[in-house]
Design a protein around this nucleic acid. Sequence first.
DNA 1: CTAAACCCTGGAGTATAGTCCATGGTGTAT
DNA 2: ATACACCATGGACTATACTCCAGGGTTTAG
Lengths: 126, 126
Amino acid sequence: MLIGELSKRSGLTKDTIRFYEKQGYIKVGWRERRVNNYKEYSEAVLRRLLLFRKIKAYGFSLNEAAELIALIDAGAALCDTVAQVAHERIEAIEEKIRELTSLKALLQSGISSCPRRTDHCSLFDL
Amino acid sequence: MLIGELSKRSGLTKDTIRFYEKQGYIKVGWRERRVNNYKEYSEAVLRRLLLFRKIKAYGFSLNEAAELIALIDAGAALCDTVAQVAHERIEAIEEKIRELTSLKALLQSGISSCPRRTDHCSLFDL
DNA sequence: CTAAACCCTGGAGTATAGTCCATGGTGTAT
DNA sequence: ATACACCATGGACTATACTCCAGGGTTTAG
């Protein structure tokens, strides 16, 4: 299929697909050019793009997604390995949540310590 | 004071201070050059930098900090106004926390739905 | 024949907040 | 005299993940 169809079926824009190619996240064109120089994409490429989307939906970065896919390609995506990776991601998310929570608490305590009577708020006083 | 001292007293690197100047977050040098072209910074600039640090510590971006400082400069930093801004920030943080929490749940449900017996994890199957 | 709708490439721009570098001037101590 | 610390400027580079553009070729319908 050509890039337009691939774009529709993968849900990624043409630009994104070309970007992934440039970055080497998908390799293609690599022989599959039509006479007119148009690239012919295979179903395998489509599956790869869908996989990227799925993994990214879990909050992984493109690079992390690529690493996971390499693992899968290598047949090394054992449950334990994947669970391990997912756990690390969860911990990173939890850490981020903790940061945000304490930031929120900081703001709330700032607000609640405000006298609310003057015409100048002390929240940002040095 | 010269930039070296300002850097030490503000806790910001010289590069950061120069960056703030370039971006117009602080205006200086504006007459206060020594004969040798060295910039002379005032205590007012130091206070401004400390204010930026403080506001940024609350998780505001540089631009938001600049807006808040403009408010303060204008004498318009009423408690209600500031509380309003802080509330918006808190809501944004809460929204982010909700996103992260659901992402975490997604990952967790993915992991827990894993049979954990095969040599290929189904978590990332299409 | 021409317009619309595709395709190609390379490169620049977006956002954020700096960080680093080259090049060159200045000030102080030995 | 020279080393060393300090100052100045402008511009490039970092990370992430695209997004958009210019300039050009191709295909298809009317």
